[in-house]
């Protein structure tokens, strides 16, 4: 992370959404960095604000949402971009793969119309050339009868095929950053792996950076370089994926890791994280996880911790754990504590 600035920096992002009871905070502090060419996973339960954070990068939040903080793409501020600049960012630099391709692709127009539309309307590519380009891309993501698929409509395609179409659409714009919002959650288990492999391959070939949103810690660790864990509208821990199991310092991350069912140990009961997940607006002045945390102390209920170095990464915790409990390996080095 030296030399050129990271491709994407989300700094102290706060988002409020209007509801019937006035403005309600959905993200209270999101900090995130995606260096060029790397994959960063944003992991959290539903409602933790991970999708919101991703949408804030492309300014896809509802028009009455209030955003403060900073989102910088390649050094330039996204939150203050004008209409033309925003269109340019969306058309050229950042592409998004949505969770549910069936809802996110216009059902009444053909696959070909959907795929070529952005090229034709945002870059003035001739329809013929656009068609040739996306047909080649469709073949590349493993759709053999690409020219037939181009003439079909979304209801005629399976979910797995449609998600490949969505990925093709994202790649067609030759972006530098791919935002994938739970791209496999709406798919059958059998097609999930295929779709993940396609994304991984396309990324490797093009040197694409990726912000990968998921609730699946294991999947995140498998496909990403770094992992950011979100809880109740804030990023609580950020660390290299390869150290997730040994060096997770935040109690929430550790609880998530511990609650994952172990296929080998069939006799053991499932361990859930105790308590229920909070929304960002429900949190008090202290640490959002404190009410569910086994190690919470007085300080945790009164003062909100900010991200500070812990273990191999950053953790927003007053008392980050040493590398003890998740793996039985005793901690060899001292862990810096928060304030």
């Amino acid at each position: 992370m030296t030399g050129s600035p990271p491709l994407l920096v989300v700094d102290d992002l706060r988002v409020d959404l209007p509801t019937r009871d006035g403005m309600r905070r959905v993200i209270h502090r999101a900090d995130l960095t995606v260096p060029a060419g790397t994959a960063v996973a944003l992991v959290g339960e539903s409602g933790s604000g991970k999708s919101m954070t991703a949408r804030a990068v492309l300014r896809l939040l509802p028009s009455r949402a209030r955003t403060t903080g900073s989102v910088r793409f390649d050094g330039s501020e996204v939150t203050t971009l004008g209409a033309a600049g925003l269109r340019r960012l969306r058309a050229h630099d950042v592409a998004m793969v949505f969770q549910d391709p069936r809802a996110h692709i216009n059902p009444v127009r053909t696959v070909g119309d959907f795929l070529t539309e952005a090229l034709i309307t945002t870059r003035g590519v001739r329809p013929r050339a656009a068609e040739a380009k996306v047909t080649a891309l469709l073949r590349e993501v493993g759709i053999a009868d690409a020219s037939r698929r181009m003439r079909q409509r979304p209801p005629e395609l399976s979910g797995g095929l449609l998600q490949r179409v969505m990925i093709t659409a994202a790649l067609a714009g030759e972006p530098r950053l791919l935002i994938a919002d739970e791209p496999t959650t709406a798919l059958d288990v059998t097609t999930q792996a295929e779709v993940m492999a396609i994304i991984d391959e396309a990324r490797a070939e093009r040197g694409l950076a990726m912000l990968f949103i998921t609730h699946d810690l294991a999947l995140a660790a498998a496909v990403c370089d770094r992992i950011a864990v979100m809880y109740a509208g804030g990023v609580v821990e950020e660390l290299p994926a390869r150290h997730l199991h040994e060096r997770a310092a935040h109690p929430y991350t550790r609880a998530l890791l511990a609650s994952r069912p172990d296929p080998a140990a069939t006799a053991e009961p499932l361990r859930a994280v105790p308590g229920r997940p909070l929304s960002a607006f429900e949190t008090g002045p202290g640490c959002a996880f404190a009410p569910r945390c086994a190690h919470a102390q007085d300080l945790c209920h009164t003062e909100r911790p900010s991200l500070s170095p812990a273990g191999e990464g950053l953790a927003a915790c007053h008392f980050p754990a040493a590398d003890a409990r998740v793996t039985p390996q005793p901690g060899a080095r001292s862990t810096p504590h928060g304030r």
Binding site: L60, A91, A95, F98, H104, N106, E117, T122, G173
Partner: peptide, 10 residues
Amino acid sequence: HVETAWARGV
């Protein structure tokens, strides 16, 4: 699907 169109800069 309209969100998708916006997200692509159409």
